[in-house]
Amino acid sequence: MQKLGNTLVNMTVVLTLVAIVTGVILAYVNNVTKEPIDEQKKETLASGIKSVMQDNNLQVVSTDTVKKTEQEDNKEYTYVIYSVNNAKGEPLGKAVESTTMGFGGALKVLIGFNTSGDIKGYTILETTETPGLGAKADQWFQAGNKGSIIDKNPGTDKLKVTKDGGSVDAITASTITSRAFLKAVNQAYAATQIDVAEEETGVAMASEVGEQSNN
């Protein structure tokens, strides 16, 4: 077959065709994968909430998005608070999504608090921490490990690394990640507190109606 020449018409036609075809293919693939991607996200979140609340049979009763400016660094942080009931409909506590800046980028954590504010569990949702160093955060602070924060209460226990005068052992050689992690936990706790305070005084929160979980 003869190769197409470099005429303006040929070039325009080829480029336009390529643009249309690639656009159509991508739109189609996007359409096909959209549902599984949303499904994946939902599933990750649902299993995350279950693991941090230490209960396999729970219901998410409401989802609140709270924006709050922290005085410490004058930056606005966004928290997503899931209020959770157990199978009998009694309140279990709250799971909170909280994001801070870690060593190499955003560190997004999901933390479960029971009704009195004790930490039930946590899981790392997003991280860019260094493998072998900061990335150890997903195990380090779990129950039974060196830096365990489980069953502690950020309101009464001072959740800071020992270097900063707190009671939590930092991950070896990863003080920055440890600080960022504990900051995320403490700020998440503070966010649940304002939520409670405002509910008590009857101020309506700007909240989306929570989706019922499938369980």
Binding site: Q2, L4, G5, N6, T7, V14, L15, T22, I25
Partner: peptide
């Protein structure tokens, strides 16, 4: 054979990006 020489790089990049 369907791509004129002058625009072959953009076409290839579009294919790869897709």
């Amino acid at each position: 054979n369907l791509t004129p020489d002058k625009v072959h790089i953009p076409v290839y990049i579009a294919v790869i990006a897709t």
